[in-house]
């Protein structure tokens, strides 16, 4: 398979994730859509790694996975903290940035 096919799939997944971030209102689902976008970037990195026959792109992909795991941990901690304060879990309702 030509590398261009993999890049096309990566672009489509990235745009689906972006539309989810724009349209959905539950922060949990927005985090899931961010995962989609990061995974699309991972697919592009690995496709380029295969294209050049160089392992560096795979290291990039692994580091991206580490950063995504950190983002998930902190994001889910935030959602749990929001739930504990009995605030609505809706990004449109959470406007006031005060402690």
């Amino acid at each position: 398979m030509a590398i261009g096919w993999y890049l096309a799939v990566s672009v489509i997944i990235f745009c689906i994730g972006l539309s989810g971030v724009l349209v959905r209102r539950n922060p949990l689902v927005i985090l899931l859509c961010l995962e989609l976008m990061l995974n699309a970037a991972n697919l592009a990195l690995i496709a380029f790694s295969r294209m050049h026959g160089n392992g560096d792109g795979q290291i990039f992909a692994i580091i991206v996975m580490v950063v995504a795991a950190c983002e998930v941990t902190v994001g889910l901690g935030l959602i749990v903290a929001i739930y504990r304060r009995k605030l609505p879990i809706d990004v449109d309702e959470l406007k006031a940035l005060n402690g």
């Binding site: 030509a2 590398i3 890049l7 294209m51 160089n54």
Partner: peptide
């Protein structure tokens, strides 16, 4: 929002597939 996403899709497809990268159309190394 869907319009923005559609425009970005077209732009990214042009950037990746329509670019002058000759290696994109190949099997890779």
């Amino acid at each position: 929002s869907f319009g923005v996403v559609g425009l970005l899709l077209v732009e990214l497809l042009i950037a990746t597939l329509g670019s002058g990268l000759s290696a994109v159309g190949e099997e890779g190394a």
